[in-house]
Design a protein around this nucleic acid. Sequence first.
DNA 1: GCAAAAGTGTTCTCGGTACACCCATGC
DNA 2: GCATGGGTGTACCGAGAACACTTTTGC
Lengths: 244, 244
Amino acid sequence: MKNFDSYFKSAFTVDNVIFGFDESDLKILLIKRQEDPYIDHWALPGYFVLPDEDLNTAARRVLKQLAGLDNVYLEQVKSFGAVDRHPFGRVITVAYYSLVKIDNFNPQPDNDVAKEVRWFSVSDVSNLNLAFDHEEMVDVCFETLKHQVRVRPIGFELLPPKFTLTELQHLYEAILETDLDKRNFRKKILSMNLLIDLDEMQAGVAHRPAKLYQFDYDKYQEFLEEGFSFEVKESKRKERQAVS
Amino acid sequence: MKNFDSYFKSAFTVDNVIFGFDESDLKILLIKRQEDPYIDHWALPGYFVLPDEDLNTAARRVLKQLAGLDNVYLEQVKSFGAVDRHPFGRVITVAYYSLVKIDNFNPQPDNDVAKEVRWFSVSDVSNLNLAFDHEEMVDVCFETLKHQVRVRPIGFELLPPKFTLTELQHLYEAILETDLDKRNFRKKILSMNLLIDLDEMQAGVAHRPAKLYQFDYDKYQEFLEEGFSFEVKESKRKERQAVS
DNA sequence: GCAAAAGTGTTCTCGGTACACCCATGC
DNA sequence: GCATGGGTGTACCGAGAACACTTTTGC
């Protein structure tokens, strides 16, 4: 029998691209590393997978330890394995993206990996000179999110439990990086019957208060079971802008 | 500085789900293993990633060495990392799917991993008791293919350079596991302007010979650059069948 | 001439898109 | 009373889906 020992000299990590939504801005949670390599660089929350831990478990543990997050939407996206991507040796990483309700939590680093945790606008990430190949990972995950949000109602994972239709629309606009037509958006969303009208109103706003809605997870489960497709199309307004 | 040595004790592999299309059957290429673990089991063509090799390179090398395949469509799908998935130690694997023109090549094992190489119908795979978690990998890759084929014209990768519209339709039906309406399918495909009419006919068939077409890769490139979406919808005939 | 697959057009329906004005609140 | 965003309906258009008969070949 051959000897395979020489293959058992690599490590692997998980890295999380954590999306949040705030006002009308799509954000990503980053940590400032306090250990080598890339000490003092901004980076995705990620760490080595333990020997007795499978990949998803590792991703959830890292979310908890580095960002204090629990119980969030999490999906594997892609693995990155360039030979020289890690200075300590051969390290493959598995990228995940996750969606969190941003106002829900206050990132508190209580570990010796992250010296600081902070939300950044997606559009600012390219100026930060992220550690490793993390910028590429952000790009790939953002593209994946853009695609997924058209196919499943995962947008709700980014909003508080009660939200207005305008907030939902702003979220879609931020993710898809486009403008949506208000009336068409509402018609489409409401026609899916995935929202529960809470018969409550916004309060304390300096304009006509909006109705509050809640996502109907039970109904969504029903739809899933009978196979169903969710999609949001963009308005063509931007084309007119492009011409002018 | 911490010591990370304990993390550098794992290995990783790549595994390929290789799809081919033959007559009206979607097939997968499997090897019969001639080394432990799972000796004599059918398995996906896969092997350890070498220390100085990145993931895509490894996938292509394995395709070449184990299946004699070169220059094929290849895409990363997902990584699998259950703790006990490999008896020799901690091994993560990265699953790829690839698409090949089946009549183009005759699988010849010339290596000491595969004792035999053979095409199996996708529908038969679940009876083979594949090595490792390979059956799950086949399922995931098949689902991915089903989705991708609706969004990009990758179906052509599975057909010979010259093909008839009926062959193309049978391919879509095999992948999507549904029936398609002939007239609607042709209208849709031809309206995309991605096929070149070769002004040639099938020969030697015991019925009216069909026109031969060729995929227009150049035009596809143009479309890609200006952002474009390709989709094929299924017929609703099967619903009628289900009722009867 | 018969079996077997190729080829071809029209109608209907539904979802997508464009588009503009009145309403309720805080200040 | 004014600024701010909330909320609403209609007409048009195009893509998708349903559907049946004639044509060409090998035998």
